[in-house]
């Protein structure tokens, strides 16, 4: 009960906070335009070349990429780094709740505040490109949402683990930047894994990247879910969790010895 009350207070405050910056949320919703850019190029390419997906399939694929990205955006490394540099972590350490809940609260509330913009953009898409209209089945929708949730948690934990570097260097986000490049090109944002050469795809499927975008997207478009689609990201999640906890403990020790 107290947990629920606390969670509600967190979410309400962070929701209000997000709404103050709603013009930025609109910008964020627009900022994720990369899938639509890739979409244009791939629709045109599929018109003239021999690719595994038809133009309209590329259209749907990238629209869903956009949606999954909206659902799974994570920026905790920036916030954590900022909090350390500005000394805002110290007061949070005094509160009787792990500071991570502040970040979780912010991320969840932001999702709610962002939703209206996303709906508008999707509606706009189908107005411009009515041929791409499709209605996923219940099972596909549930599978996509579940995999997106897994992707979100995995991304959050991974990024939070990277954020721990902020205890040692002022440039934790630079380290995360390298990871971000891998994410950009290998997760399916610029091109679906289906158009990757066979050998490259096999290797990439052992990294966490495709499970953050490509796999949840394909689930909504009706592709079958295999055990591997859950096991590999699950394994990565475990690794990230352990790494984060260890780094947190070591980092805190260092932080407090430096005089917080």
């Amino acid at each position: 009960m107290t947990f629920l009350r606390r969670a509600r207070a967190f979410l309400e405050v962070y929701y209000a906070y997000m709404l103050v910056y709603r013009s930025e949320l609109l910008l964020w919703a627009l900022a994720m335009s990369l899938p639509f850019i890739s979409m244009g190029a791939w629709i045109k390419a599929a018109d003239t070349g021999a690719f595994p997906l038809a133009p309209v399939e590329f259209g749907r694929y990238f629209l869903v990429v956009y949606l999954v990205r909206q659902l799974t955006v994570v920026w905790v490394v920036w916030e954590f780094e900022y909090d350390i540099v500005q000394g805002r972590l110290s007061p949070r350490l005094l509160q009787p709740a792990d500071p991570v809940w502040h970040y979780v609260g912010g991320h969840v509330a932001e999702r709610a505040a962002r939703l209206p913009f996303t709906v508008v953009i999707v509606a706009f898409f189908f107005m411009l490109y009515p041929e791409a209209w499709f209605v996923p089945s219940w099972t596909e929708t549930v599978a996509c949402l579940a995999l997106s949730l897994l992707a979100w948690v995995l991304r959050f934990v991974l990024q939070y683990a990277f954020a721990m570097a902020a205890f040692w260097t002022e440039k934790a986000s630079s380290i995360e930047g390298l990871w971000q490049i891998g994410f950009l090109f290998l997760s399916g944002v610029v091109a679906p894994l289906a158009v990757f050469p066979e050998a490259v795809r096999e290797v990439v499927l052992y990294t966490p990247f495709p499970y953050l975008i490509d796999v949840p997207v394909r689930a909504l478009l009706g592709a079958p879910i295999t055990l591997r689609d859950v096991l590999i990201p699950g394994a990565w999640l475990l690794v990230a969790l352990v790494a984060q906890r260890l780094a947190w403990r070591a980092g805190l020790a260092r932080y407090s010895s430096m005089g917080a």
Partner: peptide, 27 residues
């Protein structure tokens, strides 16, 4: 970091570009 970033970005970017040039397709 910036050097690694630039190099990795270029390699992966060129890979993504090459994807369009499969099976004899070109812009």
């Amino acid at each position: 970091f910036s050097t690694l970033n630039a190099a990795l970005g270029l390699v992966l970017g060129l890979f993504a570009l090459s994807l369009f040039f499969q099976n004899g397709h070109a812009f």
